[in-house]
Amino acid sequence: MKLQIDEIPNLEETEIIIRCREVDDRINRIGNYIRTSYITINGKDNGESYVLYLDDIYYFEAVDNKVFAYDEHKVYEVSYKLQELADLLRKTSFIQVARTVILNINKIEKVSTLVNGRISAVLINKEKMIITRAYAHAFKQKLNG
């Protein structure tokens, strides 16, 4: 395998091209990692706009027809609908875990099973999320790869 990194100061947008003979599991994982690290979303907090990296976001939550992104310290309102985000982030480490929540798996510290098929997830900031039973199976499948 050859790795080439070209630093071009006046490049408008970072471009990553992977050339391979066949797209296998490993290539897919590299692609997913790159997507998670480099996809950005615009968020608003108190009228000010911010560029949010997916890697920094813990979870998205829909409340009163608005969608909010939660990072370690702050909450931002984003202009996407939850379903749009679910489609956009399908191949990343994000997964829908409840009717109104999309969670970043990389921000989970540990999980444990609860009654009635639900799963409790403790995030790295010690916040607790419940993965409802409707989404528990998909969550386990995603973990299994």
Partner: peptide, 21 residues
């Protein structure tokens, strides 16, 4: 049984996170 299930789940979580990094 619960410990076994949770251990397996957390191992899968760990593998998932390591795969991505």
């Amino acid at each position: 049984k619960l410990r076994k299930v949770n251990k397996s789940l957390n191992e899968n979580l760990k593998n998932f996170k390591e795969r991505d990094h």
